[in-house]
């Protein structure tokens, strides 16, 4: 095994040469382009700054996008909800729109870090960390959200499953690109959602397991039209339990089907063991429990509880 100097020595500084405060997105993108990958986008800074201090991230410049116009709002356009790239966790939690139409995201954002972290940290930043257990990634993944990414080449829209690339990498290269917005369909009638989190303590800690689920039911037939189940960290990136979802689609609401979904999610999860955050075996067992609990709660909220 080889070890780096930074594994045993720490500094109190973040070692960047320039701090840039662009006024427009175009200006920001140009600044990034000029630095040719040696500059990093920073918004709330809650993820980037600690990484710089620990030398887990080394760049020459920071491009602070937090004052770019038009990216701090939460809006509804038709049945779509649009979350600006600069919306903080605290704003998300406080938004009536999100609480009513995407409760699972509000529940997830409420569990990020601490009040101070939620005041600065953004949902887009949480996504961009690529962390397989990020608290808002799972809700957005279950909501089938898509991300708009701006670069000097223009804008593109990436659906979340493709956004996450594993190993804390995402489709948005935060040394060249900016996430300008996140959009997803508002939840409506006959839809229900649930966010669950397992952790060693109740604040200031990453989760052992995070689950977000969204279900769409036919209340008359008592069947599940559609279901989305996102779990982390059970794979190198935020994970959709597709096998479990397939079992649920079109199936009648029943205890048995929920159990089967849990078992399927158990089988398709491949968590890693960690001496601090628990064994793979335990996390897999918890996947089963969480999928079951998440579905019960989401189905109840959708108006179609398991009898």
């Amino acid at each position: 095994m080889s070890y780096a100097f930074k594994d045993f020595h720490w500094a109190n500084d973040i070692r960047v040469n320039e701090y840039l405060l662009p006024k427009t997105t175009a200006e920001a993108l140009e600044m990034l382009a000029e630095y040719k990958g040696q500059a990093q986008v920073v918004s709330g800074g809650t993820d980037v700054i600690p990484k710089l201090r620990k030398r887990e991230l080394e760049v020459e410049a920071l491009v602070d996008i937090s004052r770019l116009p038009g990216m701090s709002d939460i809006k509804q356009k038709g049945d779509k909800i649009i979350l600006g790239g600069l919306v903080t966790h605290a704003r998300t939690v406080a938004s009536l729109l999100i609480r009513e139409k995407a409760g699972v995201l509000a529940e997830g954002a409420a569990r990020v870090g601490s009040p101070q972290i939620r005041n600065m940290g953004t949902v887009a930043g949480n996504l961009a960390s690529g962390h397989p257990a990020a608290d808002t990634s799972m809700p957005l993944l279950a909501l089938n959200a898509s991300v708009t990414i701006a670069s000097t080449e223009g804008e593109r829209v990436v659906d979340l499953p493709q956004f996450f690339q594993g190993g804390n990498q995402t489709a948005a290269d935060s040394r060249r690109e900016i996430i300008t917005q996140i959009s997803f369909s508002a939840l409506g009638k006959n839809q229900g959602c649930c966010y669950l989190r397992l952790s060693k303590r109740r604040a200031l800690t990453i989760a052992i397991l995070v689950l977000a689920t969204v279900v769409d039911v036919d209340p008359d037939e008592k069947t599940i039209r559609d279901a989305a189940i996102a779990i982390g960290p059970v794979a190198p990136m935020p994970f959709r339990a597709r096998d479990a979802e397939e079992i649920l689609k079109g199936a009648p609401v029943s205890k048995e089907i929920v159990e089967r979904a849990g078992d399927a999610a158990y089988k398709e999860s491949t968590p890693e063991s960690s001496v601090v955050w628990g064994s793979d075996e335990y996390k897999k067992e918890m996947v089963k429990v969480f999928v079951r609990r998440g579905l019960y709660k989401a189905l109840k909220r959708a108006g179609c509880p398991v009898a």
Binding site: Y19, L62, I117
Partner: peptide, 8 residues
């Protein structure tokens, strides 16, 4: 409230 230690 914000954490000033991670605030540029």
């Amino acid at each position: 409230p914000v954490n000033s230690c991670i605030l540029p």
